[in-house]
Structures are given as structure tokens and as C-alpha cells.
Write a protein that binds this DNA or RNA. Structure first.
Length: 411
RNA sequence: GGGCGGGUGCCCGAGUGGACAAUGGGAUCUGACUGUAAAUCAGACGGCUUUCGCCUACGGUGGUUCGAAUCCGCCCCCGCCCA
């Protein structure tokens, strides 16, 4: 028999950040969640909570960590968490986040991605308290008759009302039949797992609700659903996603994460602070107020944000190092993790830049020089034909733009 | 089964015989400015050489033409509509 913190306390933690885009839904879900928590306290039986992730990429990015953080909170309160990997759903492609159909993938590819994916998830989740599941285990077992049975709970109109489907329909773009089944499959996950609560992004509301509907049809009490705002990507507008190329992967090097966060647009601060940090709402509100009042430099705020995020995934030490490197770079100093390149004799600047991977072609290197973006030992280079002398035992520093450095070591 | 439309540079998307390495937007990069690497403004953005020039590129292939991303044949792929 497990004991839980007081229901009010649990509610305040669990409802933080929840966003349905609809007050009525919020009120209902809040009521249902409270009832479930009370029941759990009375019976000593923890709630079963889950969130599904499609293994479409081998790496998790900050966007994935939003629901993971919420699962973690449930774990800390003593509830049971299922980390569900959409090995089956992932092969179909979720239409939720796209206005066009997503690429399908094979089960093998999905399983391969799932491996690294899960490992990374444990940077947020408590490994000991997490049950990992794969939905191909039950979805792959359904017969055609079973599928028809599930489908009979929905109408085509319900699907066509969905924003992303109606837009595509209006534009005359294709809507594949199998995309409709995505919601059914995800809904069936809830039935198969017999869950109490499901977490997801606001874009998942339709799919989560499908789960409720199917559970009702099967005679089980429908799950509570909690949805959270979408994290924007580095472009500041679009949803963070690896395929859009605007993501910050949690596996990326501390220095990379740090500089990516530092160069986010100022207006994304709230979104990131509320969704991916461990900070309290009070702290976030205070920071925003300070920025508003002009007492806190937005860049300083972003530096703290960057430190916090690096610290979550790589620890305090890595965060300190990344912050120090960023500061040095900003002041025009070479960072500690600058790559080195050894030269054996004198070498043409263009060749050196290409060899060291700073540029991909002579044209690109020339262009940078023409634009005044290349410095050698602090001096702006003006002649693209310049040669780098071989100075035995003495390092030289090549800088391209504000962020790229190369330490030239003479062999 | 029938009718129609489409495949262009990292992405989106103009361009229907020469003025096209190819308009525009996004992304990216550089510079200026700024208490930020944000915002804003300016520039760059296939490759080789940088002076002229040359090479590669608009699904594939074969043609027509002095000359094609643009016209024609065949092939591959994709979408919409009607049945």
C-alpha cells in the first residue's frame, strides 16, 4: 500500500502548465483527475500514467522532454509511469503535427531508434520506476475484425472536423485512409495499457480523446488526459522537430546546447523557461518582470536558461564549462573546446580552412574572407591568397565569424 | 477504368525557347548596429578560377534547335477529380 502526498498538493504540481485551449475541457479533466487521486489515496493503489513517443528519430530533443518532465512528477508523487514507444504507430505516421502526410518507416528502423531514445529518456525519467512498453506488441495482434470494431466508434465527420484534416481536405490535398487509423491505434494503446492518465502535447488532444472513447466502449472508466503547450524550435515560431531542423537535441554537446539556447529569440524565453526547466513559476515570473522593467538583460536571462538546460542533461560542471566558453568566445577569446589542426609546413589559408572543415569549398572560404569574417591571430585577413607560416612550437588561432575557432598547431 | 495537374537549387516556390546558375520567401552564413549571438538593417548563399572565363544543375533518357528548365517521344514517380 502506497501513501501519497495530500491531493491538493498533488493537484498543484500536476496541473501546472496544463493547457487544453478550452476551459470546459480543463474543468472536466481537473475534476476527474482529482477524483482519481482521491481514490488512489483511499485505496493505496497508484495511478497508471503514460505518454507515447514515436521513434521517428534516434534522438530526443527538448520538445520531447516536456511530457517526460510531467511523467517524472507523477513518479515522484508515487504513481506508476509507462514509457510507451510507438513502434507500431510510428510506422504509420502521425498526421497531428503536419498538414501533409508523414513518411512511414519500417518496424526495424523504429526498434533501432527506440534503443537510443529510451536511454535518453532516462535522463529525465526515473529508470527504476519506469515501465517501458512497445505498442506493436498489441497493435500487431489485432485482426481485421478487431479493427473494424474499433473503427465503428467513430464517424468520418469527426475526423474531417479536425483542423489539419479539414485544411488538407479544403486544399484538395491527399488524406490517406491509414492516417485515420492513427487515432484508433493510439486510442487502443490506452485500452491495452488500461491507464488512468495520458499525457501529450495540445496537438494530441484528438488522439487522446479517442482513447477515452474506446475505453468507454470497452466498458472501462475513460482515462484523464492532460495536454501541454508545444515547445517552439530555434526559429522561434515553428514547433520543435528534428525534421524541421530547428531542434535542440539533449544528446548534443554542452557547448552546442548552450549557444543554441543563447541565440534563441528573446520572445521565446517564457516558452522555454516554463516547459523545459526545473524552475518554479515564481522564479520565472520574477525574471520576466525584471526583463520587462529593464533591470535584467535578456541575454543574461538566456544565459541562465542555457545553463539550466545544459545542467539538466549534462550536469552542473558541464554547464559551468559551457558558460565559461561562451563568455570567452563572446569576448573574442578562443574557447577551451576549440578543435585543433596540425600543420607540417606552410599552408594556403583556403586549403587550411577546407582541410579543417571550417568551410566546404574555396568559394565559401573566399566569401568569408571578403566579408571580413576571418581573423588570424586576431588580425582580419584581407588576402585570400595568404599563406599560414609554420611556426614550430607555437600555436596560432584562426577565427571564422564570431563562433568558430581553430587552434593551429605546428608539428 | 476515364479526365486533369505536377516533379526546379537545403526547404517552399516562380519561371513555358535565348537577357537563367535560374525572381521571391524561409533556413543558413558574414557584416553593421545593440547592454544579447535577440530584434533591425545590409550583404552573401552550386563548383573551379577570381580578371575575362569554364564546368555542373531544373525527375530519367533520347530528340528538335545555332540555342531548352522551357518544345517533342519514351520511361519513372506523385497528386486531384469522376466512376
Amino acid at each position: 500500500m502506497t501513501t501519497f502526498p495530500p491531493v491538493d498538493e498533488q493537484m498543484s504540481i500536476l496541473m501546472r502548465g496544463v493547457d487544453f485551449g478550452d476551459d470546459l475541457t480543463r474543468t472536466n479533466m481537473e475534476k476527474e483527475l482529482r477524483a482519481r487521486l482521491e481514490k488512489a489515496s483511499a485505496t493505496g493503489k497508484p495511478l497508471r500514467v503514460y505518454c507515447g513517443f514515436d521513434p521517428t528519430s534516434s534522438d530526443l530533443h527538448l520538445g520531447h522532454t516536456v511530457p517526460l518532465r510531467k511523467l517524472r512528477q507523477f513518479q515522484e508523487l508515487g504513481h506508476e509511469v509507462v514509457f510507451l514507444i510507438g513502434t507500431f504507430t510510428g510506422t504509420i505516421g502521425d498526421p497531428s503535427d503536419k498538414e501533409s502526410a508523414r513518411q512511414q518507416q519500417t518496424l526495424d528502423a523504429a526498434m533501432e531508434n527506440a534503443r537510443t531514445f529510451t536511454e535518453q529518456a532516462f535522463q529525465v525519467l526515473d529508470r527504476q520506476k519506469t515501465l517501458v512498453e512497445y505498442n506493436h506488441k498489441w497493435l500487431g495482434e489485432l485482426s481485421f475484425g478487431d479493427v473494424i470494431d474499433l473503427a465503428s466508434n467513430f464517424t468520418v465527420q469527426q475526423f474531417l472536423t479536425r483542423d489539419n484534416f479539414s485544411k488538407r481536405h479544403a486544399k484538395g490535398d491527399p488524406i490517406w485512409l491509414h492516417e485515420f487509423f492513427y487515432a484508433l491505434m493510439q486510442g487502443y494503446d490506452a485500452v491495452a495499457l488500461n491507464t488512468d492518465v495520458q499525457i501529450g502535447g495540445t496537438d494530441q488532444l484528438f488522439n487522446l480523446m479517442a482513447g477515452r472513447k474506446l475505453m468507454e466502449a470497452k466498458g472501462t472508466e475513460p482515462q484523464v488526459v492532460l495536454t501541454f503547450p508545444i515547445l517552439v524550435g530555434t526559429d522561434g515560431t515553428l514547433r520543435m522537430s528534428k525534421s524541421t531542423g530547428n531542434s535542440i537535441g539533449i544528446h548534443e554537446a554542452p557547448g552546442v546546447i548552450f549557444t543554441k539556447v543563447l541565440s534563441l529569440a528573446d520572445h521565446t524565453f517564457r516558452n522555454f523557461a516554463e516547459l523545459v526547466t526545473r524552475w518554479s513559476q515564481t522564479k520565472i515570473d520574477e525574471m520576466l518582470a525584471e526583463i520587462e522593467a529593464g533591470r535584467l538583460n535578456p541575454q543574461e536571462a538566456k544565459a541562465q536558461l542555457a545553463w539550466e538546460i545544459v545542467s539538466i542533461f549534462h550536469g552542473d560542471e558541464a554547464a559551468n564549462q559551457a558558460a565559461e566558453d561562451a563568455r570567452r568566445m563572446f569576448e573574442g577569446d578562443i574557447p577551451s573546446d576549440a578543435p585543433e589542426h596540425a600543420i607540417a609546413g606552410a599552408i594556403g589559408l583556403l586549403d587550411l580552412m577546407n582541410e579543417a572543415g571550417l568551410t566546404r569549398s574555396n568559394s565559401e572560404a573566399r566569401r568569408l574572407i571578403q566579408q571580413g569574417g576571418v581573423r588570424l591571430n586576431g588580425e582580419t585577413v584581407e588576402d585570400a591568397g595568404e599563406e599560414i607560416a609554420h611556426t614550430a612550437g607555437k600555436d596560432q588561432v584562426l577565427q571564422v565569424g564570431k563562433r568558430r575557432y581553430l587552434r593551429i598547431v605546428s608539428a
